[in-house]
């Protein structure tokens, strides 16, 4: 008996010793890992902050340099943009009108068609139709913008010119329309998300009162999903303002201050492409103008994104 207990005791001790031994050999490393990993991961997470800071700082510093050479007011109220030549003029208004017009044309296409698509998908379509149509929209959203640019330049512009003979070979109308097509999937899918998150009880309540589907959509679903729908429009506008390749290819590079959409115009994004493509020497006003225009572009899109976030947060109906 005595012997047995002794033996048990000794085995227990051996196992405990083994555990202690293992602790010392492997726990150290894993304890360090345990402490280190959150710090490493936090550092990695900071990279996204650094990117934003990098964008802001480069834009701000170089823009300040630009405004040392060109007065603030001349930039924002100048209607003449002549970056090259003996007497360069840096008025941003031609670029602003170009950007504004192309975005307006795009939204003229994207808002009605996108909203109607969203209504069809969320309220009318059968499950089968939705299963076919949604992937097609996703494909449309996944096509690179350069392909849309090619399409606008080699197909849409010649097509439009057969209707409107006065249309120039590069103009703001054609890229605007194609940009609208490009933005349809975005508006449609965001609006559809907003509409399908309206609870079914509201739909059924209205239907039970004798409303037709259209009346339910128009008087119940759209008001209930309004914030989400407006947010999708705002994000669409932001996308249109920042779009580069379609307008660079199809709208040309003339810097006229005009509101005639059949003419060639330049957008802010296309100007950036033109100046960087020309390898502007660092330190010249031309080079800094790149950053001033980019800053304006960034400011507008940032404002739109904030607005969209604000709208969808502030005016959301909670059910």
């Amino acid at each position: 008996m005595e012997n047995d207990i002794d033996q048990q005791k000794s085995t227990t001790i051996t196992i405990r010793q083994i555990i202690e031994k293992n602790k010392h050999s492997s726990m150290n490393l894993s304890r360090i890992k345990e402490r280190l990993m959150p710090i490493i991961l936090f550092t990695i997470a900071l990279i996204s902050i650094l990117t934003t800071a990098g964008i802001l700082l480069t834009l701000i510093f170089e823009t300040i340099e630009f405004f040392k050479a060109v007065p603030f007011l001349d930039f924002f109220t100048g209607t003449k943009l002549k970056p090259l030549g003996a007497d360069p003029k840096f008025g941003v208004l031609p670029l602003l009108t170009g950007t504004l017009l192309s975005s307006a044309i795009a939204m003229f296409v994207a808002i009605p068609i996108g909203l109607m698509t969203a209504i069809y998908l969320s309220e009318y379509a059968s499950d089968n139709a939705r299963r076919v149509l949604k992937p097609i929209l996703e494909v449309l959203a996944g096509i690179p913008t350069i392909v849309y640019g090619f399409f606008a330049f080699t197909f849409v512009t010649p097509l439009l010119r057969s209707f409107i003979p006065s249309l120039e070979p590069t103009n703001i109308l054609s890229p605007g329309l194609v940009m609208g097509i490009m933005i349809i999937p975005m508006v449609a899918s965001l609006s559809e998300d907003a509409m399908s998150s309206v609870p079914n009880a509201l739909r059924e309540g209205a239907l039970a009162l004798g409303a037709t589907k259209l009346e339910v959509t128009w008087k119940v679903i759209i008001p209930a999903a309004f914030s989400g729908i407006i947010a999708s429009f705002v994000l669409g506008i932001s996308r249109a303002i920042g779009e580069t390749m379609i307008v660079t290819i199809a709208s040309g590079s003339s810097k006229n201050f005009t509101f005639d959409i059949t003419q060639s115009m330049q957008t802010m994004t296309a100007y950036i492409v033109e100046v960087t493509g020309g390898e502007a020497a660092a330190g010249t006003t031309l080079y800094y103008s790149l950053y001033a225009v980019a800053m304006t572009l960034f400011f507008f899109t940032f404002l739109m994104n904030l607005l969209a976030q604000y709208i969808s947060r502030r005016f959301r109906e909670e059910y």
Binding site: S48, T58, G242, T301, F302
Partner: peptide
């Protein structure tokens, strides 16, 4: 803060990233 920042970065036009790349990496 990090989350909002990532969402905002997703909305920055691609050409602005190009300018960041030009300024920091290329030049």
């Amino acid at each position: 803060f990090i989350q909002t920042n990532i969402n905002n970065l997703a909305g920055v036009p691609s050409i602005v990233f190009g300018i960041l790349g030009l300024t920091i990496f290329v030049r």
